[in-house]
């Protein structure tokens, strides 16, 4: 799971810029545009890298035995290494020596546990202030929602929508989607759709981090003493931990379980 947050950071910089415009005039330097360029190049680079090929180059894939098409690896007593993708029936991967499992261990339980944790943390993350703007000795505490409201009132509708989607909608949708997936592992009705949903969830996970980055950028950038100072508040910690829990939850889930029920007698 490559956790590439460079693009998220770019969006966070833009959102922070919008927020700062209420207090100061901002001018974007060359560094910003080079960073934009870097992000695009970096994302392109990541898509070009084939992990399997790298492992192949490192050490050719060990062929265990003849494989039967149309049958799941599990039914052929083969386990895929989570690290390098080597198929093996041993307890440890012969190529990278990682411990091997048929499926991610306790996948459903862990996914559920992480998601429940995330749901619990969602309450303080949304209720407690995430940051405090000290403007001439005047404290203004902002929660996630009040930040969105302020942006909306200032007329920054696109930014407000992005933050609303990233910080409020996505965590809720993710939670609902994961519960749906967990049910789907038991029902096995729309497996393909569920698989697509899972891939979407994995991609989606990091976007909720926008607000965390916004706070990080503002806190590090706006330190002008009593005139204008931004302080992080406990809410952002809960929020960040919640996002991480959701990502852990999605990561713990094993989509292969979705397919196991399709033909259990094989």
């Amino acid at each position: 799971m490559p956790l590439n947050l460079a693009d998220i950071f770019l969006v966070a910089v833009l959102v922070s810029a919008f927020k700062l415009m209420a207090y100061a005039e901002l001018e974007l330097g060359y560094g910003f545009w080079s960073y934009v360029l870097f992000v695009f190049c970096f994302i392109e680079l990541l898509t070009l890298i084939d992990e399997n090929e790298l492992w192949q180059r490192q050490q050719p894939q060990f062929e265990p035995k003849t494989l039967h098409c149309g049958k799941s690896a599990k039914s052929q007593a083969l386990k895929q290494c989570n690290v390098c993708g080597q198929l093996t029936s041993d307890t440890h991967c012969p190529r990278c020596y990682a411990k091997t499992h048929f499926r991610k261990p306790q996948a459903n339980a862990r996914a559920l546990a992480w998601m429940v944790t995330a749901l619990v943390l969602m309450i303080p993350a949304n209720l407690l202030p995430i940051m405090n703007t000290v403007n001439l000795g005047q404290n203004t505490f902002a929660t996630i929602f009040s930040g969105i409201v302020i942006l909306w009132q200032d007329g920054s509708y696109p930014v407000a929508i992005i933050i609303f989607a990233a910080s409020i909608c996505i965590p809720i949708i993710k939670a609902l989607a994961l519960f749906y997936l967990l049910i789907e592992t038991q029902r096995c009705k729309k497996v393909e759709q569920a698989s697509k949903l899972y891939r979407w969830l994995e991609w989606m996970g990091k976007w909720s981090m926008i607000d965390v980055f916004v706070v990080i950028i503002l806190v590090s950038l706006v330190q002008l003493g009593t005139v204008l100072t931004v302080e992080p508040q406990i809410g952002i910690v809960f929020f960040a931990v919640m996002v991480l829990c959701q990502m852990m939850s999605v990561h713990s889930f094993d989509p292969r379980i979705l397919w196991d029920r399709l033909n259990p007698h094989e």
């Binding site: 306790q106 339980a109 862990r110 546990a113 992480w114 429940v116 944790t117 619990v120 943390l121 309450i123 303080p124 209720l127 407690l128 406990i234 809960f238 931990v241 829990c245």
Partner: peptide
């Protein structure tokens, strides 16, 4: 009983404590 279930329990405790404190 998986050890992983301690995570939400801890989270719940922390959350309740924080909200109470708040």
């Amino acid at each position: 009983f998986s050890v992983i279930w301690f995570v939400p329990i801890i989270a719940l405790c922390v959350t309740i404590w924080m909200l109470y404190q708040h």
